[in-house]
């Protein structure tokens, strides 16, 4: 294949181009493709009414339809029950009373707002005073606690120092006793040696005195 020239390639491509599917297979393939297309179309057509059915079956859709119906009926009833020409005087009196009521409400709310502001300022002052008092109390408590802590720490230190001094004294006494014991033992040994030496010297002197007379050279 490595030495394939263009003629050989063309020959093989031509061989591929000569391949023909069977008539039966072609018809079957086209029919299947047609089925696919038509099935998709049917599925699409079936899907659209189903969507509407789903909407109609849904509780939300029913509620929406009922709401639309009620609004329409209300509008119709309002239109039918509407009076003829409006009475201008009546409208004026209604508007005046309505305006007066609204003004009253507005004034009341304004007064409420002002008194509310005063209350708020007095509350602010009280709050500041309270905050000051609490701060003072807190400072006092902290100071007292610090003094108590220092006193407690001082007494504890004294007690510890006393205990330490007592321990030092006990250790010193023990050392003195042991040193005394040792010295006493040394004294006893010295006396024993001294006695031994004296006895030895006495024996020697006695032997020296007796020897010249009784023993020949």
């Amino acid at each position: 294949m490595s030495k394939m020239d263009e003629t050989e390639i063309r020959r093989q491509l031509e061989a591929i181009s000569q391949i023909e599917p069977g008539q039966e297979a072609t018809e079957r393939a086209v029919a299947r493709a047609r089925d696919v297309v038509l099935r998709n179309e049917k599925a699409h057509k079936r899907l659209m009414p189903r969507i509407w059915q789903l909407i109609a079956k849904g509780a939300t859709a029913k509620l929406a339809a009922a709401a639309v119906l009620m609004v329409g009926l209300g509008y119709l009833a309002g239109r039918l029950s509407a009076a003829g020409a409006p009475d201008v005087e009546e409208i004026r009196s209604v508007v005046e009373s309505s305006m007066a009521a609204r003004l009253d409400e507005a004034l009341e709310s304004k007064i409420e707002e002002i008194t509310g502001a005063e209350r708020a300022s007095s509350l602010d002052a009280r709050f500041a005073e309270l905050r000051e008092g609490l701060g003072e109390q807190l400072r006092r408590d902290v100071k007292e606690a610090a003094v108590q802590t220092l006193a407690a720490a001082g007494s504890l230190t004294d007690r510890r120092l006393t205990e330490l001094a007592e321990q030092f004294e006990a250790a010193r006494l023990a050392d003195r006793q042991s040193v005394g014991e040792v010295l006493r033992e040394m004294e006893l040994n010295r006396r024993y040696d001294k006695d031994q030496l004296r006895n030895g010297l006495r024996s020697l002197v006695a032997y020296a005195v007796e020897a010249p007379a009784g023993r020949p050279d």
């Binding site: 591929i16 181009s17 391949i19 023909e20 599917p21 297979a25 072609t26 393939a29 086209v30 493709a33």
Partner: peptide
């Protein structure tokens, strides 16, 4: 073009 497309796919 169904037949020619099928022939193409077969080739």
């Amino acid at each position: 073009s169904g037949a020619s497309l099928f022939a193409l796919l077969t080739r």
